[in-house]
Design a protein around this nucleic acid. Structure first.
Length: 719
DNA sequence: AAGGCAAATGTTTTT
DNA sequence: CATTTGCCTT
């Protein structure tokens, strides 16, 4: 094989990374610097030059999408079989390990994976059995807390309550939840990782096997690893294997869910004999866009320090539009998009990004109005939808009637007269005798402990499942799914549901049958249903397809990471929205928002359009926010402020905020600012009027509405 | 046990 | 504002 082909079209830094022969390699890859490329080419280099067998390589990513992409690109470059090479997500690989070593991991052979919805239900059940007040102790919070502990590698047994009533309660729930999971033989996502770590920790012979096997380990998006994932990697690498870690501290935006940027710093300490390469040349964006991105991120402290540069031209200025309100903002974006299309561009090549999903509504309305096709990413994914989860629960019960999570979910869906009371009897018996709900239900029927009506309902449910699972081996997957959906009455239930929602649910159920038909099991010799269920649990399915239509893409800034578009809009560049007000208290949070802004800006290849609204209704009431600090951090000479109808370049100030800041400086307040008045309470500044001692201010108070006050005597206090 | 109405409650998301 | 959740009635 010709080795030079691996190195063609690589720049010096990329080549250095691909060919590095130090044991460990850390690649700090700026946005758009060819990160995946380096990863893929390094794998090729390891195989063809260092003669490492694909069998001895493990490549790990965070998302299924990233892992699919990596597989495809390795395939493309090498054109050889990837057989034996492990490429997957952290969770996927952990699952694979646990399946192979279920005994050592102290799991039942056919353990089920809980998604966050299942997990919440279970936490709720545990908390209810502990008689905790759901108002005082929200189950969501407990779930969050438990996952947070697990992400840190902490089990209930490792923790001390230390007299703190909050901790004490959380810990009790954690213990109860752990016990329940253990009894049911189910594991949640965080558990998947923690178990895989413990599998190696407590079974040195298993660990040794994998340590010997994997000579080289590659990790993508290293800045997103949490404590458990990092420990897992260290353990696997041992002292012999090499580790290539690729990441960007400036793109760490998942700290709030346990990701530790510090892992990048620890890396050089924990893995000796490390070489670090920075990829700073950007192949994606114009220099104006990079200038903006660099300026925004420069305000963060504790960066490893990278500066993106490009040798492509300046490109166009970054447009900034100050809208009156969110409708005006959306209309502007739609207009701008329309002219982009009229100029012969594809909608597909543009994206509208925003901080929170709630912003998409207004944008959608404007696009609909303008007749511009769009595609929304985010929100609920296919296998997470209620109707799909119900259908899957029937399949799970057919496979294993002792699956209590599935049993709870669909025992009375569609309603068949098995209510809370009946269920409570079954639950109690199951708990007292440590048997499954299925067994408890059967026992109760036999002993005739129920009223005739409830008894009949339970009996017919058990019979339904029995009948369906009787045909398990005979029918193909799609027909089993169809049976489940038909005979359970699920499809009939949604048909009767009024409105579009029912219609959509029926269609989704039909799509599920299609998905079953298209499913290709990894191992053709094993039963197909369990493989299907596992796959579905680990990959909730890409959001609505409809790929064929040329459409604008709408998504949150978070989900835009890793993508690029010639034209990018970022809507809602306002204080309190972006940076989000929730993240203003903690400085670490604010830095993460700044990185999110950096991620957003660096998605744009040719043209970036930032918009903000002077007034925006949030949850029904109007709020007034000033332009985001991130916009103010961008050098003014790369910004072109857009006014209605005409476009003016204003190197000195933004027209809209100029008025504000002038008045703001004179009065100590600015438009939209939250202030407090000792009689009227809190409100927002709507307008200023006049100058000097007679200056007046319009304030919209939350309690009493809008008042006009003499600024000098109102004694307003900034909130 | 099921359907209807009032009240609460609102970041970001992958697995 | 819009959706979900819990309580209350039939």
């Amino acid at each position: 094989m010709d080795v030079t082909s691996i190195l063609t079209n690589l720049n010096a830094a990329q080549e250095e990374a691909v060919t590095s022969d130090k044991q460990h390699l850390l690649v700090l890859a700026g946005a758009g610097s060819g990160k995946t490329r380096v990863l893929v080419h390094r794998i090729a280099w390891k195989i063809q030059v260092d003669n490492i067998s694909p069998f001895a390589i493990l490549a790990v990513t965070f998302t299924n999408k990233a892992s699919r992409e990596m597989r495809e690109r390795i395939d493309e470059l090498l054109g050889i079989s990837l057989r034996g090479m492990w490429v997957g997500t952290f969770h996927g690989l952990a699952h694979r390990l646990l399946k192979a070593h279920w005994r050592d991991a102290k799991l039942p052979e056919n353990f089920q994976i809980l998604d966050s919805d299942d997990q919440l239900r279970l936490v709720k059940r545990v908390m209810r059995s502990m008689d905790l007040d759901e108002q005082r102790w929200p189950p969501k919070q407990a779930q969050w807390w438990i996952n947070g502990q697990k992400d840190e590698g902490l089990r209930a047994a490792h923790l001390q309550e230390g007299g703190d009533p909050f901790l004490a309660t959380m810990l009790r729930v954690y213990r109860g939840y752990e016990e329940t999971c253990e009894r049911l033989g189910v594991i949640d996502f965080a558990e998947l990782l923690l178990r895989a770590l413990e599998l190696w920790k407590y079974n040195p012979q298993v660990l040794a096997h994998y340590q010997q096997r994997f000579q080289h380990i590659l990790v993508d998006e290293f800045q997103d690893t949490n404590a458990v994932q990092y420990a897992w990697l260290r353990l696997l690498a041992g002292t012999v294997s090499g580790v290539t870690a690729v990441g960007d501290d400036d793109q760490s935006i998942y700290g709030w869910r346990g990701a530790k940027v510090e892992n990048i710093l620890s890396y050089e300490r924990d893995f000796s004999n490390t070489h670090t390469v920075k990829l700073e040349q950007n192949y994606r964006s114009t220099s104006n866009i990079l200038l903006a991105a660099n300026a925004v991120i420069a305000k963060n402290a504790d960066r490893l320090g990278k500066n993106l540069w490009t040798d492509s031209g300046e490109g166009e200025a970054i447009a900034l539009y100050c809208a009156f309100n969110e409708h005006d903002e959306s209309r502007y974006i739609a207009d701008r998009l329309q002219s982009w299309v009229n100029d012969g561009n594809r909608r597909e090549d543009s994206a509208i990004l925003y901080r929170s999903n709630a912003q998409s509504r207004v944008l959608e309305a404007a696009l609909l109005q303008a007749d511009i096709p769009y595609r929304i990413y985010g929100g609920q994914r296919f296998y997470e939808r209620l109707e799909i989860k119900n259908a899957l629960s029937y399949l799970r019960l057919m496979l294993n009637c002792h699956d209590d999570v599935a049993f709870e979910r669909v025992v009375n869906v569609p309603p068949r007269g098995i209510g809370e009371r009946t269920l409570e009897v079954i639950r109690n018996l199951a708990r007292d005798h440590t048997i499954s709900l299925w067994e408890a239900a059967s026992a109760i029927l036999k002993e005739k402990q129920l009223a005739a009506r409830a008894s009949n309902a339970v009996a017919s449910f058990l019979q339904l499942i029995n009948e369906m699972s009787g045909q398990l081996d005979e029918l193909p997957l799609a027909e089993q799914a169809e049976n489940a959906i038909q005979h359970s009455g699920l499809i009939e239930m949604h048909r009767r549901e009024k409105g579009e929602r029912g219609q959509a649910r029926v269609e989704n159920l039909e799509e599920l049958i299609g998905a079953c038909r298209n499913f290709e099991p990894e191992d053709k010799d094993l039963p197909v249903l369990p493989q299907f269920l596992d796959q579905v649990a680990l990959d909730a399915g890409d959001r609505q397809a409809d790929q064929d239509q040329d459409a604008v893409q709408l998504m949150t800034l978070h989900s835009a990471k890793g993508l690029e578009f010639p034209l990018v809009f970022i809507a809602g560049m306002e204080e309190n929205l972006f940076p989000h007000k929730m993240s203003l208290d903690e400085p670490g949070r604010l830095e993460e928002e700044r990185r999110l802004a950096y991620v957003g800006i660096t998605r744009a290849m040719q043209k970036l359009v930032l918009t903000f609204a002077e007034s925006r209704s949030i949850y029904g009431s109007e709020s007034f926010n000033s332009v985001s600090r991130f916009v103010r951090d961008i050098p003014k000479d790369v910004i072109e402020e857009v006014r209605l109808q005409n476009t003016i370049s204003r190197p000195t100030s933004y027209a809209a905020s100029a008025i504000r800041s002038d008045e703001g400086e004179a009065t100590g307040f600015h438009l939209g600012q939250q202030v407090s008045h000792k009689v009227y309470g809190e409100g927002a500044i709507l307008n200023f009027e006049g100058n000097g001692p007679r200056a007046r201010v319009h304030v919209s108070f939350e309690q009493v509405g809008t008042k006009i006050l003499i600024l000098a005597s109102a004694n307003l206090v900034a909130v």
